[in-house]
């Protein structure tokens, strides 16, 4: 299974994911991004914060190729797997 790195972008700032995780493919990458973003948004809401739609995951493979950009706004607006 390939390893994917979920870097997290907040405006100009990029927090690097040095660890990455093994996932079977792009569909699983998208599902993980969706579920994780839903989780973060829900936690933020419970903490009294506005929805963090300006953030995104930038997911790269081991060769550092950009595989997917996943804006948190998608998780706020679209259905997906239960986190």
């Amino acid at each position: 299974m390939p390893r994917y790195f979920f870097h997290y972008r907040d405006g100009d700032r990029l927090s690097e994911d040095y660890e990455g995780e093994l996932l079977p493919g792009i569909a699983a990458v998208e599902e993980t991004a969706m579920a994780s973003a839903k989780e973060i948004i829900a936690d933020g809401l419970l903490g009294g914060n506005p929805v963090l739609t300006g953030y995104s995951y930038e997911i790269r493979d081991e060769a550092r190729n950009l595989v997917l950009v996943f804006p948190f706004s998608e998780a706020a607006e679209k259905p997906g797997p239960r986190p």
Partner: peptide
């Protein structure tokens, strides 16, 4: 108890 990518987000908040 969260998905792994979310850890980066939480660490960034503390940072």
């Amino acid at each position: 108890g969260v998905r792994r990518p979310g850890v980066t987000v939480a660490l960034q908040i503390l940072e």
